[in-house]
Amino acid sequence: MIVAERKPIEEILPWLEGARSVLVLGCNECVTVCEAGGKKEVGMLASALRLLFAKEGREVNVGERTLERQCDPEYLDELRDTIDAYDAVVSLACGVGIQFTAERYPSKPVYPGVNTCFMGAALERGVWAERCQGCGQCLLALTGAVCPVARCAKRLLNGPCGGSSAGKCELGPEVDCAWQLIIDRLKALGRMEDYERLIPVKDWSKDRAGGPRKVVREDVRS
C-alpha cells in the first residue's frame, strides 16, 4: 500500500485562512489501511478543525466525505454536485489522490492533509515499513524477493558494503542490512549460486531518470 502520515493541524490551518466552508476528503484505499486518511481520520481532523475555528471565533462549515478512491475519476465525479458548496478541500488521500482531485476540479483549492511516504506494509499495528520504490524494473527474482533498491540504504545491487555488521546497516542497529536478508533468504532457498551472479548496472531510465512515467496498455485502452 501507499503509506502516508497525517500532517500536523498547525501546518494545515494557515492554508484555510478566509475559507468559510471546508471539505475534509478521505480515501477508502491505502490511507485507510495505514490509518492516515480514511473515514476515521477524516472525522478526527474535521472535529479538530471545528474546535480551532470556534476558538478563533470563525464560522466555518466543515464537511466530511470519504471516497472509495481519489485516484479514479469515476469516484471523484461523485463530488460534482457538492464541491461548489466548499471554498477549499483538505484531501487526506496520498499525493496521487490529492493531485487527481485538484485536476478534476481545477477551480477548487485542494490542500494536502497527509505526507505521502512510501510503498510499504504493516509490520505490526502502527508500524509500517518501506518495501518498494517503484523503480520500474523488478529485480526480486534475483534477490530472493528482498529488494535491495528499497531496502539497502545505498541501493547496492551486488552484495553488501563495508558498513554491514552483524546483519545490520551502518545507519544503525534498528536497520537490517538488506544484503544480509538476501543472503539468509537465498540460503534458505538453497540458491546461493544466485548470490554469485552479478546483476548488471541498473537501468534508472525505468525509474525517474527519464522524467515522469506513464504506463500505457493498448490492449485495455478504451
Binding site: 548496472v201 534508472w204 531510465s205 531518470a209 527519464g210
Partner: peptide, 13 residues
C-alpha cells in the same frame, strides 16, 4: 539536461 537526452540515458540524475 536530463540524462535521457545524453549518451548514458540509464543514469540516475
Amino acid at each position: 539536461e536530463d540524462p535521457s537526452l545524453g549518451d548514458h540515458h540509464r543514469a540516475r540524475a
